[in-house]
Amino acid sequence: MSTAYEVLNVATTANDAEIKQAYLRLVKDNPPDRNQEKFQLIHDAYSAIKDHKSRVSYALFRLPEVNFDTLMEQLLQTEHTLNLSAEFINQLLQASIDDTTLLNATATSKK
């Protein structure tokens, strides 16, 4: 399985603008109308790493093997002063857990 970085053919250190441009170039060559699956792969990769928050989340949870060097690099890229307090780490985790609150839901039933 290729990583999102490999799909988009960008360095793991690429910034938002570089990733966006790589994404658009690939879309231009692989429009959704010609090859839906390929497009979806490209789009999923882009969604996974399009901004700083998603890149950190991707590094934490989705990269095949957690590469701590990459992860630290991602974390240190932030423009704000890095505050590695428990609160901050908690927020980072929260950011990607938000979407799964629906797990509590159970299917409607019918006799």
């Binding site: 797990l103 159970t106 299917a107 409607t108 039933s109």
Partner: peptide, 24 residues
């Protein structure tokens, strides 16, 4: 959400021996 799109969610049956689920 961008088109085309495909999303999967997991749901749980709500009582024992539930043999039918109605999906709306």
């Amino acid at each position: 959400s961008v088109l085309p799109n495909r999303k999967t969610e997991a749901f749980l049956t709500s009582y024992d021996n539930q043999d039918t689920v109605e999906i709306i």
